[in-house]
Design a protein around this nucleic acid. Sequence first.
DNA 1: ATAGTAAGTGAGTAATCACTCATTTTTAGC
DNA 2: GCTAAAAATGAGTGATTACTCACTTACTAT
Lengths: 208, 208
Amino acid sequence: MENKEVGQEQLTEKQQRIVDAAIEIFAAKGYSGASTSEIAKKAGVAEGTIFRRYKTKKELLMSIVGPMISKVIAPIIVKDFDKVITADYKDFESFLRAIFSNRLKLVEKNQILIKIAIQEIPFHPELKEKLFEVVGKEVFKSICQRIEDFQLKGEIVKIHPKLVVQLIFSSLFGYVASNFILFPERSVHQDNELEHTIQFILKGLRQY
Amino acid sequence: MENKEVGQEQLTEKQQRIVDAAIEIFAAKGYSGASTSEIAKKAGVAEGTIFRRYKTKKELLMSIVGPMISKVIAPIIVKDFDKVITADYKDFESFLRAIFSNRLKLVEKNQILIKIAIQEIPFHPELKEKLFEVVGKEVFKSICQRIEDFQLKGEIVKIHPKLVVQLIFSSLFGYVASNFILFPERSVHQDNELEHTIQFILKGLRQY
DNA sequence: ATAGTAAGTGAGTAATCACTCATTTTTAGC
DNA sequence: GCTAAAAATGAGTGATTACTCACTTACTAT
């Protein structure tokens, strides 16, 4: 788990170790429970080294989580949803599979960062705003429009698109939480489980 | 929002104010971010008063969240699931509605406590263990058995009962998160939303 | 080799923290 | 009203914290 570049500039090896250590300790103890002393020890550097690049402890956190939201989550979602939105899917199932595919690999790849973001959002309003701004503006509207297209085609039930999104992402999050956050050591049934989750959503939303 | 009794004994008015203040600040800032000084100020008492009853800050948190898990969540789940399990439901839909009913009112009533529990579980392994112990031992097995019963009757798909539970609670959690945690000020579509969520689950799990 | 800059160090600082405890205040029972 | 116990107080304590800054080391360009 390495972040080669957090922020705009290339990090020195020691600064990189600071970031890696911070990620680990923020994830394990939360921002408030993490001390710069402990982060420095873990990185094998002097505590003052942290403050050569980051003015405050919070700036260190933001340098990690901010890009997580704006550069990892958003591009994952936005860029690929451009494809999803513009692509021509024969049906809702293809659309749903497009949402699921890649997402899970990237979640797995960034799970610790996502864990930190989720843990910290309740305590840092600016993170919550950023997430909702990115997701709300770019993604939510686009998804809802696409949902409405499928509804017009009569493929899925005509309920409020926002609720459709909520239902889809609840199941997705349940799958992610179960496999990557709560029980990361359990990798059994993974393929079946994903397929069953997709079928559950498809059937649950199908128009009869 | 008042907790008249946390732990075994009746609290003095001041101690009660401490608990109320702690709940508020733990929810807003997390355990590590909350200081006993701030809690005391908010409660309008001297800081030492906190330590008359609670040996440590952590004991204060546990006195709040521990019973939350063992006395609120578990009884909600266990006691009522005894009824659910022993009751004779004509079909899976009745069973599902029994799960949903009452749960939501009690979630609404205890939402801030649930928020604290969710926020703190990643940082306090004993809370996670307690939750899984209670839920795992008493509830999970019982629910899975009941699920299997419905599967034998051919009412729902024959997938692993654990996955069924995951799917149900993902959707339930999505509903709860949307209405009580993320957007508590938004009470629109509430009745429809719940019904659609239930229908989504029913259809998603139905055996065809 | 020299000078300037960048990176790093770690002792120290002021503030904050969880908690203690001698003292004061309040309560309850007679 | 008196006494003992319970509740509360708040100054103080040692530890911890985020951060500073004078100094050292390393690197780069001339």
